[in-house]
Design a protein around this nucleic acid. Structure first.
Lengths: 336, 336
DNA sequence: CTGAAAGCGCTTACAG
DNA sequence: CTGAAAGCGCTTACAG
């Protein structure tokens, strides 16, 4: 048996020649299309196998009009939220043979434009736009692109699919957990009121308290920053008066971390005197607090996977309904 | 003036037809190759511009044998180290028109194989392998690939280029900073001895102390885990005896965080009584300690950028010397 | 300076 | 069941 003509990559011509068929037949056999006798099909497959033939995806894309690549545009250079999303996207897509181009655009419009053009030139089948804030869109217009776009954790137009964690459901779970632990004076310490997620979680917190029985103490929301420092400060403020809370729902894990540390410094016991629930399940923080932090997980990896699969569906022509899809959060019970 | 034939993407045929030249001429004009009269060149460019012509990168790649894509294989699913590297790679490469495929392989050999095959099928021009540990290679053999490979933060073969932070230089800088602050009893609290970086930084610490004048107290290295908890524990151990250190160089920022917290709980003042230097400049940790942490930055983004540029050079045929390239770390002085 | 033709590696009607 | 031919969108010798 003779080998391929050159020492270069083996092409379908090599396979066809050695299997003594035409390239058309080889192509069909390898792709399982057309009617081919089982015998020739097997022979062709065997030859391909032996030669280590791997089809050139570029050539294939040129005719098939599908590149099996998608672009992932992200805002979040720090990556705390984006990375799990990316991992999920990649994981969900690789099974379908699609690879993802990563574009970190850092909120720079020119850079975003450059990346977007590069993606389009490379004929991506679709684009996933993701960011760290739902209320801040990416600095580029993704409307009227020749390919479908799915949004995750960032603002998209009304007619597109936008995947976000269900902040409301997550917050309600957190509050209900505190109530189930017999907490009656539950306050909410969170980030800046300018963040839509902060307001959304706060609203859910208020509603959850209002609908609880027997009625707990009046809701109390403290807006601040997403930092440990603010957690400390909030505790100082809350403990300056006579009435202390017995449950604190924090807007993120860093705030919760600050709250827990400040409480310990005051000799307040967690969870004996005060129960704490965070938000994010950022393991590096949540597992290191003393006690470890009970918190809400946004299931971002799953969100990424769903974003990928949704995009695939759009690409293959299924018209998705569009709109905001809220994916459930989970309560992770630890020691606080 | 007539528009393109169909409503589909405009091709070079549309440009040629409307500019009334052949596609060969159009191609040359647009790419600045061959001899073309300035006049026709301008006309062609104008037409291309007007039609919004963007060359199909796939078709171009098919002839040019360069896809202007590279693959980034990473081990580090958590992304604390990988993300800055990725951002750097992407940033350094987009200027050269190359896009990067992200493959999160999570130490799974089968998954890695699948990703690698997908990359090769898509004709990537090169591959960057990156991970979280220099002493743990990726679970796949990247030898004898048809494309060049550059390693960053992960173990590569001797003849390949491997980019790593200069741990030794970073550690020495940390120790010298403590010495310059008049610290004489400097200990090193770090991660597991099984980590090569832990041993490397420890060796550098010892050497830096030994070569200092006047001679400081004997070196003392405490191996443990990369956690806050261990920082606490180490302080408990160090303060159980009579002789307390006045400087602590920590193997990472989390340990430093634990050390600082434990010190505060004991009423030991930082930096008045003890100076602390961390390692990583993980801002989310380093900026939240009280006082903010002085630490070593590994310049991972720059490392990523260099990895990208090095790969480009290999792709374009420059034979790089190969071996371990150590990129300098920087001391970030904050309040500790 | 410009263009006709072949080719990159594959797929897909269309014949036979 | 199998193959010759055209085509995907571009580039590149080679003629003229």
């Amino acid at each position: 048996m003779i080998g391929p003509t050159s020492s270069e990559r083996v092409t379908i011509y090599d396979v066809a020649r050695i299997a003594e068929v035409s390239v058309a037949t080889a192509s069909k056999a390898l792709n399982g299309t057309g009617r081919i006798s089982e015998q020739t099909r097997d022979r062709i497959k065997r030859v391909a196998q032996q030669l280590g033939f791997r089809p050139n995806a570029l050539a294939r894309s040129l005719t098939s009009k599908r590149s099996f690549t998608v672009g992932l545009l992200t805002d979040d250079t720090y990556g705390r939220f984006t990375l799990p999303v990316m991992a999920g996207v990649s994981e969900g897509l690789i099974d379908h043979g699609v690879s993802v181009f990563l574009c970190a655009v850092e909120g720079n419009p020119d850079l975003t434009r450059i990346h977007l053009d590069a993606l389009l030139d490379k004929q991506v089948d679709g684009i996933i736009a993701t960011g760290k804030r739902l209320d801040k869109p990416l600095p580029v217009d993704l409307h009227n692109l020749p390919v479908p776009v799915v949004y995750a954790l960032t603002a998209g137009p009304a007619d597109a699919v936008t995947l976000v964690p269900d902040d409301r459901q997550g917050a309600i779970q957190a509050v209900q957990h505190l109530i189930a632990r017999q907490r009656r004076r539950i306050v909410h310490v969170t980030g800046p009121e300018t963040f839509e997620v902060a307001r959304e979680r706060a609203r859910a917190y208020v509603d959850a308290l209002r609908s609880a029985e027997p009625a707990p103490a009046e809701p109390c929301v403290l807006y601040g920053t997403w930092s440990e420092r603010w957690g400390h400060e909030a505790v100082a403020r809350l403990w300056s008066g006579p009435d202390h809370p017995d449950g604190i729902f924090c807007g993120n894990d860093q705030i919760a971390r600050g709250v827990i540390d400040a409480l310990r410094e005051r000799g307040v016991r967690v969870p004996a005197d005060v129960s704490i629930v965070g938000f994010d399940n950022w393991e590096i923080v949540a597992e290191q607090t003393r006690p470890p932090l009970t918190t809400i997980d946004m299931n971002l990896k799953e969100l990424g996977r769903q974003a990928g699969l949704t995009l695939i569906r759009s690409i293959t022509g299924e018209r998705a309904p569009g709109g905001l899809w809220k994916l459930p959060c989970s309560l992770i019970v630890r020691g606080s």
